[in-house]
Simulated scan of single mutants.
Amino acid sequence: MARSQSQLPVWLHWLDTCPSTNSWAIAHRSSLRHGDVVFTPQQTAGRGQHGRVWQAPPGVLTASFVLESISVAQLPVVSLGAGLSVIYAVEDLLPNLQNTLRLKWSNDVLLDGRKLAGILCEATANGSMGRVIVGIGLNCCVDFEQAGLGADAIGQALSLHQVVPIVPEALALLERLRHYLLQTAGLLQPKHNANESTGLTALLPALRNRDALLGHTIIVETDSEQVAGEAVGISDRGHLLLRLPNGEVRSFVSGHILWQKHETRLSI
């Protein structure tokens, strides 16, 4: 449904349809400010991690959040913080789901082991500091079958309407997501971060408590290799720790996660 800009918060840019909210935010960067949000109820050409397609059928909340003055080196941490932001926003509005959501390093939110949300962070910078666009896709009221998405397309996806009787309105979810993302940005900005690890240090207890991979046998797929082992946590730099069969523990900055027996595919 179309919305008049006069009915919306000043920070919200509501687009009736859009190929990609992240791409739109990057293209219109000169008119956007810290804390601005780009939202569309109809995203037609979304982008996921590692160049994958980001499926967004009707019922997926798709939005991009603008965060300023973030170190480019902190981009992996922003993705983890965004995952926590999704968890907190959903649990704020749906108290019955308290302590049930988990973070699948580094960019998926799971409920009952199934994918509820995905995150794509993209940085634009001159030098070491810059702007980060945090794209979030949250499955709210998605009828995957009606959308023509079979098991190969949606993997282990789950929609909020399948587990709660009333799904929060988009504006309420956007406000809560923005609230927590701004908190994350505040932790990572230089004025609060004389030591580069300070912001992450504040997030680590929650990240480790919500770690969906801990103790699972997984495969980490990088550009050059696939490595199997047991996920043994998140390092104090936000890296995934993997214990190999020989006992060695390797640290991964980025990678695509496959379960040992099946791949958890992108659903949005």
Rank of each mutant, 00 (worst) to 15 (best):
Q156E: 15
S71R: 06
Q146C: 13
A27E: 13
E122F: 06
L75K: 10
S106N: 09
T21N: 08
A151S: 10
H179C: 11
I218S: 08
L181Q: 08
L120F: 04
L173V: 01
Q42I: 03
T201L: 14
Q156K: 12
T21F: 05
A56K: 11
L187D: 02
G35F: 04
D211L: 00
Q226T: 11
L174M: 05
S235P: 07
N209K: 14
D92K: 01
L244H: 08
A153V: 06
R210D: 08
W24S: 13
L149A: 13
W105G: 00
V37P: 06
A185R: 06
T222L: 10
I87E: 01
A185T: 00
H50L: 07
S235D: 04
H239G: 08
K191E: 15
N126S: 14
K261W: 13
A25R: 02
V164S: 10
N96S: 15
E175Q: 11
N107E: 10
R29I: 13
R52E: 04
A25E: 02
Q5S: 13
A231Y: 00
G215A: 13
N195S: 10
D223T: 13
I87M: 10
G81T: 02
Q42M: 06
V72Q: 11
Q183W: 12
Q74Y: 03
L244S: 04
V10D: 12
S64C: 15
L203N: 12
L149Q: 13
L111M: 09
P245I: 01
D108I: 01
W105N: 04
L149D: 08
G150E: 08
A27L: 03
T217V: 08
W54C: 09
T201Y: 14
E196V: 12
H216T: 15
L241E: 06
L15N: 09
A157L: 06
I133E: 11
E169H: 15
A202L: 10
Q5N: 03
L84I: 05
L120D: 00
R210W: 07
T184E: 03
T124Q: 15
D211F: 02
T264W: 04
L182Y: 06
M129I: 15
Q43S: 06
G135C: 07
I133S: 12
H34N: 15
S20G: 07
A172M: 02
S224D: 09
N96Y: 12
L203R: 07
G83C: 01
A89Y: 09
T198P: 10
V142G: 04
L174C: 10
P205M: 08
I136D: 02
L61K: 01
L174V: 01
R265F: 04
A151E: 15
V253H: 10
A157Q: 05
E225F: 05
G118A: 02
S128H: 09
